[in-house]
Amino acid sequence: MTDYNFAYLDEQTKRMIRRAILKGLAVPGYQVPFASREMPMPYGWGTGGVQVSAAVMTTDDQFKVIDQGADDTTNAVSIRSFFERTAGVATTTQTAEATVIQTRHRIPERDLTEGQILVYQVPIPEPLRFLEPRESETRKMHSLEEYGLMHVKLYEDISRHGHIATSYAYPVKVEGRYVMDPSPIPKFDNPKLSDCPAIQLFGAGREQRIYALPPYTQVVSLDFEDHPFVASKADHPCGLCGAEDSYLDEVIIDDAGGRMFVCSDTDYCTARQADGFKGKDAA
């Protein structure tokens, strides 16, 4: 252990954040304001997620961090080591073993289970923000369920691109009530938000908002009757593990424009390879 309080934040701050989380769980999809603290990392690097993780973490937890699905990127590595230092918790890269998973821009491929907590890093929590800049007005729109504007955004998409081109941070409606920004996860992941056995918590540090989905919450992606929601992904199997059901990253592999598609979820891909699955680009 170090000289830090457990999980960096002082106990009063954690209580304050827990209260916000509980309120968020009680009103699924509602953005609860909280007094976001300065964290020893810049905004945009997951300060909201880190505060939520710190508030829910116990000494027994197994902590996993993913950034765009990967456990080995700078952001994931530094947040993992931050909690190793300040909380001394065990860390893991395996989805199945983790009890708290902090994520940026993905939901793990492997189904989550009861008892797990998924913590999302959120840059802009307000789904209506780009069309209505006034916070006073967006809060009123949420409270009065005036969500026509959200469909205006989708309408604009179709009129410009012929289909709903929004491919990430795709807006959803929670339990038929609040419209919510699911953070910039690919819309491929949207169906996993719904009816999920794990607790899902969303933290926006700069914007000072926390919202939440309790287990088994109904979450529906917004769409039009004649342009229904489609959870799309690149139409390829994974080059390394051959998976056809996982979200893929496109990787440029040489200067001649050569490319391959690989699972963005590194844990999922590694586990499949260990089980003997092989893609066409596997060594």
Partner: peptide
Amino acid sequence: LRMGVSAGGNVGERLMAVGARHYGDIR
């Protein structure tokens, strides 16, 4: 008007606000 939204989106907004969910009809 919403200056950042197309003419069609501007006209369609009130329809969507009262529950229209068929893109073709709105357009």
